[in-house]
């Protein structure tokens, strides 16, 4: 049962990931990304990380991809350009593909981690455990993250504000 679900989810995820890369239209790409994320959320559930699955959906699917779609539409790139083959790109693509294949091969052949059963639940399954981790051992990064978000917010406001509104005297 779990095996079947895994195969299904991973196939979905991979197919959609390829979709993101190959999609001609950016909207299709975004939708593929959405589905891919849904697949990963499903995998998270399989790994008993319910909390993370929901956070993933909330943050990524709910906000990030929506933002992508929003911007794609705002910039009206319906036509979109698929990747045409030009020498430089072909080279890059070839290199990347080769990297992909060799990397996967190597991990498959040499990266065996041993097929042991799961040892623990992982903190992602229990909200409480997760929160305790965040607010004790990792409190400092959480605080820093707050600053990061503040800075990002300020920056976004600054960058996207219309230029004519900027007060030169300020």
């Amino acid at each position: 049962m779990e095996q079947i679900a895994f195969i299904f989810l991973s196939a979905l995820t991979l197919a959609c990931a390829l979709g993101v890369v190959l999609a001609k239209n950016a909207v299709n790409g975004a939708m593929c990304l959405l589905l891919c994320l849904a697949g990963i959320a499903g995998l998270f559930v399989q790994l008993h990380a319910y909390l993370l699955a929901f956070i993933l959906v909330l943050v990524y699917a709910g906000a990030v991809v929506a933002l992508f779609l929003f911007i794609i539409m705002l910039l009206d790139m319906q036509g979109g350009q698929a990747w045409r083959f030009r020498p430089a790109q072909a080279l890059a693509g070839f290199a990347a593909a080769a990297l992909l294949v060799t990397g996967l091969d190597l991990i498959a052949i040499r990266g065996r981690l041993g097929g042991g059963p799961p040892v623990g639940q992982g903190a992602g399954s229990s909200l409480k455990l997760y929160a305790y981790q965040l607010f004790t051992a990792y409190l400092l990064p959480v605080q820093v993250m707050g600053f990061l978000l503040l800075v990002a917010m300020l920056g976004i406001i600054l960058i996207s504000r219309r230029i004519s509104e900027a007060d030169p005297s300020k």
Binding site: A63, F70, M73
Partner: peptide, 25 residues
Amino acid sequence: NVDVGILAVFAVASLGIYSLILAGW
């Protein structure tokens, strides 16, 4: 009955936006 109730509600509800965006676009 999931542990993360309200989070699940918010998470899934946030997907509702796609229908609007897609419909509009």
